[in-house]
Simulated assay, not measured.
Amino acid sequence: MSFNVINPGMLTLIEDSGRQGFQHLGITTGGPMDEHAFYWANRLLGNSPDTNQLEITFGQLQLIANHATSVAITGADLAARLNDKPIQPWCTYALKKGDTLAFGAPVNGLRAYLAVVGGFQVEEKLGSASTVKREQLGGLSGNGDPLKKGDVLHFTPHAEPIVQRAPKWTIPDYNAPLELGVMPAYQNASFSHDEQMTFFTHNYEVSQNIDRMGYRLSGTPIKSSLDGIISEGIAFGAIQIPNDGQPIVLMKDRQTIGGYPKIGCLSSLGAGQLSQRQPGQIVTFTSMDVADAEVERRLFNRVIFG
């Protein structure tokens, strides 16, 4: 009724849909960086949408199954192998006792999601199992640590194989050019027309400084008329512009307040697509209406939640 962790990989975290209702106390939400991939993994297995799973960043994870179950793998193609046989993401796989599941290096994308029928048996902290290392919350041990060699991931055994594959239209190409819609928000008016045109007409490159807190981009700098602002609550996908003019997109493990001017905000699905991009990949931005983001999310929710 478990997996043994033979190699934890570069960064493997237990995540559910996030820790809600505590940002006023300075506790961030956490949760999956790529909601699209996360929710599809649970849908393929028939799990509740919130069921916890593994977020595997950069690969190298290796597990041995001690009992039969079915798993779903979505998100990045991390060159997964089942008993040394290559397998593809966006599918389910039946595992038997003694089977080895291993991930290699990224082929397409950065983060894969591994769901098991019924989820992993993990004690929740503040209503969630999501791992936030900075806040020492969640995960297998409850203290925010990522998986480590020798950990045991318990689950409820499931002998009947589940055979499912995500429809082709749901599967993103993380190597494709990425254009992200930005909703004008926060201090958008503090950026002149020329500065906004610069932002929306130039390419930005994903830098080496990316993690679950934020994605730093590099490109033509833009400036706000504000020297700074009083720190205020900040959302997933908000785009801060610090003094050097290089955008920072705030992600799932962001701090709950920020003091830089913000030109706008990505939708959660847009930010999820960004989270699959590696250093050196190019991102462009376009203006997006809030109503369009709402329609996009409603359509996604209708597919996932029914």
Rank of each mutant, 00 (worst) to 15 (best):
S2N: 07
I6P: 02
G9D: 11
T12S: 13
E15Q: 15
H24M: 07
I27W: 00
G31P: 09
M33C: 07
H36Y: 06
R43V: 09
N47T: 06
S48A: 15
D50H: 03
D50G: 04
I64K: 07
I64W: 08
N66S: 15
I73T: 05
N83Y: 09
W90L: 13
C91Y: 00
A94K: 02
K96F: 12
K97S: 14
P106V: 04
N108Q: 06
N108V: 12
Y113C: 11
Y113K: 05
A115Y: 00
G118K: 04
K125Q: 13
L126P: 05
L126E: 12
G127F: 05
G138Q: 02
L140W: 04
L147K: 03
V152T: 11
P157G: 15
P157V: 13
V163D: 09
Q164I: 13
W169A: 11
I171D: 06
D173C: 15
D173G: 12
L178P: 01
E179G: 13
L180A: 06
L180P: 02
L180T: 02
M183T: 01
P184E: 09
Y186L: 10
H193E: 14
E195M: 04
N209E: 13
N209L: 10
I210F: 07
S218W: 08
I222Q: 08
I222K: 09
S225E: 13
S225D: 09
I229F: 14
G237M: 00
Q240P: 06
P247F: 07
M251W: 00
K252W: 04
G259A: 12
S268N: 02
A271F: 08
G280Q: 15
G280T: 13
F285C: 10
T286L: 06
V290N: 00
A291M: 11
A293R: 00
I304C: 07
I304N: 03
G306C: 05
